[in-house]
């Protein structure tokens, strides 16, 4: 077996490696080079400029603004989305009525395309015909917030859409973990007279570390990206209040023809995602409980 193993390793890995290297690694490697150049994204070749782009970034208010919006997402999306998902998962796995209906319904937004969600929610937030504004006006609030049109509310409106779309997905991830927790543990807790709250915190949550870890990785990727939903709903506005690194670099590349600078922003983005992912793996590794 040992001597022959490369007879299977090589042909089994080859198709994946070839396709992946050609269509994924190679374009990204090119992009890595572009980060150290000035390039208008037209026919003239990129011009190598060393660390110029990164120096420029340090003094670029728009970059820091976009990064801080990403940070807001990074802090609040995990708390709100995962917290809510965990809460719902716990409730549904307690054999409530219609639990199947809830499980199926809550997950559905995850399968919709971002374009469709963006269109739908732009109308939900519409200042005159939108659902929220109409409801608030109906209960007597004359000046409801202009959700996507006001820098104070736009970012949080997008947070809400993201929670709407992904809470079901994370709920299902948590539910899977909950179902694999041995019933005997709950029974023991019940014998001890534990209530719902203490059961959750003493038994359920500690046994969900693996699910939490995966969820954290996924939500980190979502919080760093946010491109699709931002682009269809606000294009980073109003007044850059919903700008994130992804939309900023898109703007630099495709609006201002600065592909070099845009790519250097993407490098920073990439590094942040990698570091956070490794950090999550490290922090949660030892906490996994075997049973």
């Amino acid at each position: 077996m040992r001597r022959h193993k490369y007879r299977i390793i090589i042909p089994f890995l080859a198709p994946a490696l070839i396709l992946y290297s050609l269509f994924v690694i190679y374009p990204y490697a090119q992009a890595m080079y572009v980060a150290f150049t000035k390039w208008k994204g037209l026919r003239k070749s990129p011009r190598f400029v060393g660390l110029d782009n990164f120096e420029k970034m340090l003094g670029d208010d728009q970059f820091w603004n976009a990064l801080s919006n990403n940070l807001i997402y990074l802090v609040f999306l995990p708390i709100i989305t995962l917290g809510f998902a965990l809460f719902m998962a716990f409730m549904i796995s307690q054999k409530v009525r219609f639990s199947n209906f809830y499980r199926v319904t809550f997950f559905f937004p995850q399968v919709m395309s971002v374009v469709a969600i963006g269109i739908l929610w732009s109308f939900v937030y519409h200042p005159t015909i939108g659902i929220f504004s109409s409801l608030l006006k109906a209960v007597g609030i004359e000046r409801p917030p202009i959700w996507l049109g006001d820098p104070d509310t736009a970012l949080w409106s997008i947070v809400a859409v993201t929670v709407w779309q992904s809470a079901g997905f994370f709920m299902v991830i948590f539910m899977a973990g909950m179902l694999s927790i041995p019933k005997s543990l709950y029974e023991a807790a019940a014998l001890d007279g534990a209530g719902r709250g203490s059961t959750f915190f003493r038994i359920t949550f500690p046994l969900l570390w693996e699910n939490t870890r995966s969820s954290l990785v996924f939500i980190t990727v979502i919080a760093m990206d946010m491109f699709g939903i931002t682009f269809t709903m606000t294009q980073g506005g109003p007044d850059r209040s919903t700008d994130v690194l992804a939309t900023l670099l898109y703007e630099h590349a495709f609006l201002h023809s600065r592909f070099g600078y845009a790519t250097s922003i993407a490098m920073v983005y990439f590094v942040i995602v990698i570091v956070l992912t490794l950090l999550i793996f490290r922090v949660t590794r030892r906490e996994t409980i075997e049973f």
């Binding site: 992946y20 269509f23 994924v24 374009p27 992009a31 572009v34 491109f227 993407a266 990698i274």
Partner: peptide, 24 residues
């Protein structure tokens, strides 16, 4: 190395590779 190489593909912003990808 290979595993992490494949894993890294999940984290990179796709539209950045678009222009090189188009050329290819």
């Amino acid at each position: 190395f290979l595993f992490y190489m494949f894993l890294s593909g999940m984290l990179f912003p796709v539209f950045l590779a678009l222009v090189p990808l188009f050329n290819l």
